[in-house]
Design a protein around this nucleic acid. Structure first.
Length: 425
RNA sequence: GGAGAGGUGGCAGAGUGGUCGAAUGCGCUCGACUUGAAAUCGAGUGUACCGAAAGGUACCGUGGGUUCGAAUCCCACCCUCUCCGCCA
């Protein structure tokens, strides 16, 4: 959520930055804001008078005035009049506030000053590349779903029977590999200073609103209708909300968390895209990195978070590149994002395997996550950052392809071998 | 699912329908005393919105209601805890 006061005071600057990500009109918000504040002024004056009357009556009664005296009668009458006026203003004001809130919740975050300007993913900027020396030499690499089925470690067909398309069952070494990857990722991120959490996988609407999935993207998540609970689309949601409505002390910052969770996404609107394999499933595993930081440190924290995600790809010796998203391609809550893209030989392309975003105070404002600094008046919003470290299914896909040998076996990355107790799959 | 208890400030815990944003204790901050510390004593210590300021308004689980006036009374809902049942 953007700061209403900023919208009011720096309208043009904010409008300009919003335009970089597509058309958003601030005028309806400004109009509502003005009406609301005017109404609030009137209402609070009336309220003040009402309070005054209440006190006066109380004082008179206490000092032994006759409840039926004319004086008290007059006060009661006025009180009733004020109340009648209030009962007209109050619903109006409440309604305006709700409208205003609803509009504010639909505005995306502002792109940071340093974000490259562009309309679509075509204008994203490559920042760096790593691991060219690990690009596979084998010319006949099978797509990961083919080799996976051949090795009998992935099964898509039976999963469709059990659930739907876009689900997978991992079998034997496939299941073990998935677990090993999760374990390796967590081990390394914990060593890098992230405190592990396993949050609830079902989350309520308020949590989705705070992190930015609601109200605009409700069609992207699975919902349990009877319970106002949703299947988590990413650990970002439950982890952000761990500290919702809290005031942290400055010494608690920064908070670094890593979390393994399954993620559930409806993938509405992506019919026909990545229909085969592990790339786009309704359910996948992910280890997520998360930071709550002091605003002054969020830039460097973003860099190190990205490096921490990269460290996993490096440990697995998977070639990748780092892309900075342009203004037009930023996610709703993000102000600045680096995507990590891993090399997938079967498609001859780099594919997203991690997305590391600085959301600045956008989520903190929605979730009311603040901190207090001694010597400073009031509270400040924390900055939140998140990144995949990494998407596990896509990592498996990358391994099955990049490490494929001419004989159709998979030579496991060295870092992974201790976890599986073998070298070859 | 059945029965009961309860939701008040960072925590603990008072609160008769009227001056209660809320006693008291703990914690925390500052000051005094002390060579230093502890102990003791004194002062302070919620959040948000409006306002240049003075000040005003809101918040005692949430939403309604009664009343001139509600933390306190009424209604609905939510949540937590205990016991029983079921269950991994």
């Amino acid at each position: 959520m953007l700061d209403l006061r900023q919208i009011r005071e720096k309208t043009e600057q904010i409008q300009e930055r919003l335009n970089l990500r597509g058309g958003y009109d601030l005028n309806p918000i400004l109009a509502l804001d003005q009406q609301q504040r005017e109404l609030e002024g009137r209402r609070s004056q009336l309220q003040a008078r009402s309070n005054e009357i209440g006190k006066l009556v109380g004082q008179k009664m206490k000092s032994g005035a006759d409840p039926k005296s004319e004086e008290i009668h007059a006060l009661r009458d006025e009180g009733n009049q004020v109340k009648a006026q209030l009962s007209e203003l109050e619903p109006q004001e409440r309604d305006l506030k709700a409208q205003l809130e609803a509009l504010l919740l639909t505005l995306p975050n502002l792109p940071s000053e340093s974000t490259p300007i562009g309309k679509s993913e075509d204008e994203n900027v490559e920042i760096r590349r790593w691991g060219d020396e690990y690009l596979p030499q084998n010319p006949n690499i099978l797509p990961h779903w083919e080799i996976g089925e051949k090795l009998k470690i992935l099964n898509f067909e039976r999963s469709t029977k059990v659930a739907q398309s876009r689900f997978v069952t991992l079998i034997g070494a496939g299941a073990a590999l998935e677990r090993a990857l999760i374990q390796l990722m967590l081990d390394r991120q914990i060593r890098a200073g992230y405190l592990e959490v396993i949050p609830p996988f079902l989350i309520n609407s308020q949590s989705l609103t705070a992190s930015g999935q609601l109200p605009k993207f409700s069609e992207e998540s699975f919902k349990c209708d009877r319970d106002d609970l949703w299947l988590t689309p990413t650990a970002e949601v439950p982890v952000t909300n761990l500290y919702r409505d809290e005031i942290l002390s400055v010494e608690e910052l920064p908070i670094h968390h890593c979390a393994y969770t399954p993620c559930f996404r409806r993938e509405a609107g992506s019919y026909g895209r990545d229909t085969r394999g592990l790339i786009r499933l309704h359910q996948f595993n992910k280890v997520e990195l998360f930071k709550f930081v002091h605003p002054d440190t969020s830039e460097p924290e973003h860099q190190t978070l990205t490096r921490d995600a990269e460290a996993i790809l490096q440990a697995l010796q998977l070639p990748y590149r780092v892309i900075e998203l342009c203004t037009g391609d930023l996610g709703f809550a993000a102000g600045k994002t680096y995507d990590l893209e891993v090399w997938l030989p079967s498609s001859g392309k780099y594919r997203e395997i991690s997305s590391c975003s600085n959301c600045y105070d956008f989520q903190a404002r929605r979730g009311n996550i603040r901190f207090k600094e001694p010597g400073k008046k009031g509270t400040q919003f924390v900055h939140t950052l998140n990144g995949s470290g990494l998407a596990v299914g896509r990592t498996m896909a990358a391994i099955l392809e990049n490490y494929q040998q001419p004989d159709g076996t998979i030579r496991l990355p060295e870092a992974l071998q201790p976890y599986l107790g073998r070298e070859i799959l």
